[in-house]
Amino acid sequence: MNERILKEFKEYLCREYRKYGTICSYYIRLRKFLKWLDKPVEDLTKDDLLRWRSYINQKFAQNGNISRVVAVNVFLRFIGKHEEWKIPVPPPKRTNKTPLNREQLDKFLEASEDDYLHHLIALLEIDGLLRPSEITEIKISNIDFDTQRLFLEDTKTGDNYIIISPRLQQAIESYFKFQRPEPLEKYKDYLLIIPSGRKLAGHKFSVKAGIIRDITKRIAIKADIKRKVTPYVIKPSSITRKFEERANPRVIQRMARHKNIKTTLIYDLTDENSVREYFQQQTKIDTNNLSPKDKARLWLDKFISGEIDSESFKKGIDTIKEIQEKQTNDIDYIQ
């Protein structure tokens, strides 16, 4: 039952989508939906869709249901029912995974230093903020040390690039010089290659094989971190640490390649002690002794960092202008 429509749907996915993972995910989700439906697609009704949504809401986690609903919506578009039967996609639910603290992240990086490959993976996660699927696809031809750019193709956020930190550049050069195995001809342009003595030696790393996850886990064990550590723990931990270092949120947003600043701010876990420390620092700044130019620069820094909104920034600048004009008039009057 429904074998023909499933085959046609897979062909449709191959035409419309480039990423193998996306094609497989939508196809598998749709196959499971049709198994639940247990009747020919020709007999599908809107009530069936409502019952299915109720079923997955009760059985599965909200975030997992996003891909299930999207897959069925893609299928509805394929059969021409998308406009009238489209299912609302559930909003993502934030998962409160506790990030590694500064000491743990430092220990993680230090534990990777005795292996060129492990150190490179650690820095691609910490400095590059890359996902496993992005790490495995890094190409040598996309690395430009002159401009400090590592170009990324066909990622979750489209074609993009990251800025290569000096220590990440050193790790790439060291791995390439001392540890990178000889690749098969078709994989010569890929940075990460499976070493000899292992299955698929000479092939590029595959995200499906879980190599990046396994290396991350091994580094964490070596660092004696007593909790489960995955690449999806390292990335938010690194972002959170950058907030603690008072980095500009817009800079962090660019590093993480988030389209929306709200996504970046999710990782800002500022606590009460940080707020008290901030106020103590502010009281040390005597704005009365600052020149109008320095005051304007201070307000601009506050605006860029998100401490004040655009309206407060404008009022502050207007006030500085008024004071400056008054001082100028007073000087003219004295002269």
Rank of each mutant, 00 (worst) to 15 (best):
N101D: 15
K204I: 00
I193Y: 04
E134D: 10
L192Q: 04
Q324I: 01
D224M: 10
Y190S: 01
T270Y: 09
I323D: 05
F303D: 03
T95S: 15
C14G: 13
A209K: 02
I285K: 13
E3F: 09
F9C: 10
Y190R: 02
K139W: 00
Q169I: 01
E153M: 09
E185C: 04
L290C: 07
F303N: 02
I121Y: 03
Q253P: 02
I163M: 08
K199L: 05
N260D: 14
V70K: 09
L192M: 07
N57C: 14
P40K: 02
N73P: 04
D144M: 01
Q253Y: 04
L49H: 04
R276T: 15
I317Y: 05
L50G: 04
L30Q: 03
K259M: 06
D224S: 13
K262L: 04
R241H: 12
A296W: 06
I135R: 02
K208Y: 15
S174W: 00
R77E: 08
R167L: 13
A220D: 06
D48N: 07
T283C: 09
E307H: 08
F75Y: 07
E325T: 10
L49D: 07
Q335S: 15
E277P: 01
V69W: 14
R94F: 13
P90C: 04
N329V: 10
E311M: 08
R94T: 11
P236V: 13
S112D: 10
D114I: 08
I162Q: 04
K242Q: 15
D159L: 08
A256M: 13
L13V: 03
G128P: 12
E16W: 09
D286N: 08
Y55P: 14
A220R: 00
L117K: 06
L34K: 02
I215G: 13
Y161I: 09
I239A: 03
D43W: 07
F303H: 08
L168V: 10
F243W: 02
T328Y: 13
K204C: 00
D106Y: 11
E182F: 02
P249A: 11
R257C: 06
T328N: 14
I28K: 06
S67W: 03
F279Q: 05
P90V: 06
K295R: 10
R257L: 06
R250A: 12
L269P: 01
T328Q: 11
V72E: 14
I121D: 08
A122C: 07
N248Q: 09
S133N: 06
A247G: 11
E244V: 03
K321E: 11
Y17R: 09
T155K: 02
K59G: 01
N65G: 04
T319G: 14
K10N: 14
T263L: 11
L6V: 11
R213H: 13
